[in-house]
Nucleic acid binder design. Structure first.
Length: 417
RNA sequence: GCGGAGUUGGUGAAGUGGUUAACACGGUAGAUUGUGGCUCUAUUAUGCGUGGGUUCGACUCCCACACUUCGCCCCA
């Protein structure tokens, strides 16, 4: 038997239903917020991710699906959504010649070569938005609240927004310097991972689970104290506006996020019980320019749909998702089958959810199938009635049976569902 | 990439080195209900993740691999 590759999965049953529900909700939301849908390729030149996500981040150094194609090109399956959208923005000159804020959203699969766990697969689906050409706190607030509102609207209540500001490059550099100076004398008291981070990505030491409660990390300098006036003003304005919009959040000065391109505002949507991240985002004002585009500010987030599905499934535990069709057509002999096909097509073309016995089931089994599908009406064809141009319809709730003229059946059902 | 746990039918699962892999749900066929939903009867894995090995004999012991799951790293 051929089995699925590690970390891949089939989207089935309830998961598939929830996925479609999420997709529909998102589509509606994005229209209301006036975002355009964009789909970028699942694979890009490897170089794109090296230049955006960061040369040193693990996501790029050891967690991508890389391969050389038949033309000897280095390709990478996208590990995240932002890089492709930014590349497309530049390549297609989507910034054009207007001053408006440019707003896109995407929904698609990403690929990361890592060890699978619950809520973490090698193929994952992300929904994300990217907003370009606005450096105002207005867009920060819009994007942060948009993500929270979508999650809430989908039915997820138990999450908290963790938010922080990394400030501009200058503030961030100053802070990194101060942090390293503070940690240097005590570095050997931290865990081995942190010692490695010290040179590679010192900000991530703040995130460490092992040393979280050590005195060293408790008294670590706070990035907030190193923000310059402009960065500080922006951050305060954003939190103020979130409060005004009734969006709850938690200041988290240890939140730094992994990708290199973030500056200023960064945030995550964390579930309350396990602290599993549903999504996260940040501002990345330098990225467009560094990829050869105009000097254009940008901000965005990504939300892991698979994790959203996981959360929604917890709520559904115990509940069965039942089918609810409008009509089930029972038939046994050839003549009845012919009528069944005709009636089924007619009903379906009139938006009536219809199923028809297509499996030579016994009379009894057909009733069972109709029950399992929760059919509102059961259309029981029999040759005798058909000869008189009549259709036998049973209301499955009242068990009442009636004979309807063949030509009026569709109208009758439409009037009674 | 590192470490731990697991893998029995459509589903939940029990089980032992030795003919027929328990039980329950579900499925199918039939009986009885005026055309089903209750009840009853029969039937439903030549198969115990895959491939090797040990053995007279393995689902049960050993090895490898695959997949799942938990933790680390990292991240959504």
């Amino acid at each position: 038997m051929i089995t699925k590759p590690k970390g891949m999965y089939d989207l089935l049953d309830i998961d598939a239903k929830l996925y479609q529900y999420i997709q529909n909700t998102i589509t509606t939301y994005m229209e209301n917020y006036n975002y355009d849908f964009i789909r970028t390729p699942i694979m890009e030149s490897s170089e794109l991710f090296h230049r955006t996500v960061g040369e040193e981040t693990d996501l790029v150094t050891k967690e991508t699906y890389d391969f050389v194609d038949r033309g000897n090109r280095n390709m990478t399956l996208r590990p995240e959504g932002t890089a492709g959208v930014v590349r497309s923005l530049i390549e297609n000159k989507l910034y054009g010649n207007h001053n408006e804020t440019i707003k896109y959203y995407y929904l698609g699969t990403m690929y990361r070569y890592e060890r699978p766990q619950l809520g973490r697969n090698r193929e994952l689906t992300q929904f994300g938005v990217e907003v370009f050409n606005s450096d105002d706190f207005m867009s920060d607030v819009e994007v942060i609240s948009l993500g929270a509102n979508v999650l809430k609207d989908l039915g997820i209540e138990n999450f908290t927004i963790h938010i922080n500001s990394l400030g501009d490059k200058e503030s961030r550099d100053n802070y990194t310097k101060a942090l390293k100076n503070y940690l240097k004398p005590n570095i050997d008291k931290l865990c081995p991972d942190c010692q490695a981070r010290f040179n590679k990505n010192p900000l991530r030491i703040l995130d460490c689970k092992v040393d979280k409660n050590s005195d060293i990390l408790k008294n670590v300098p706070k990035i907030n104290d190193y923000l310059n006036e402009e960065s500080k003003f922006r951050f305060n304005k954003i939190t103020e506006m979130l409060t005004m919009l009734d969006i709850d959040y938690e200041l988290d000065f240890n939140l730094v996020r992994g990708l290199d391109y973030y500056d200023y505002t960064v945030w995550e949507y964390l579930t309350d019980e396990e602290g599993l991240a549903l999504g996260g985002g940040g501002r990345y004002n330098g990225l467009v320019k560094s990829l050869g585009g105009p000097d254009m500010p940008a901000i965005g987030f990504g939300i892991g749909i698979d994790r959203v599905i996981l959360e929604l499934k917890k709520k559904l535990e115990g509940h069965e998702l039942k089918k609810n069709i409008d009509a089930y057509i029972m038939c046994v002999n050839e003549e009845e089958k012919i009528h069944a096909l005709k009636i089924a097509q007619d009903l379906r073309l009139n938006n009536i959810m219809t199923e028809v016995n297509s499996n030579n089931l016994s009379f009894k089994s057909q009733f069972k199938v109709a029950d399992n599908l929760n059919a509102k009406f059961i259309i029981i064809l029999n040759s005798e009635d058909l000869a008189k141009g009549l259709i036998n319809v049973k209301d499955n709730a009242t068990k009442e049976e009636m004979k309807i003229d063949e030509n009026e059946l569709t109208d009758w059902i439409m009037g009674n569902i």
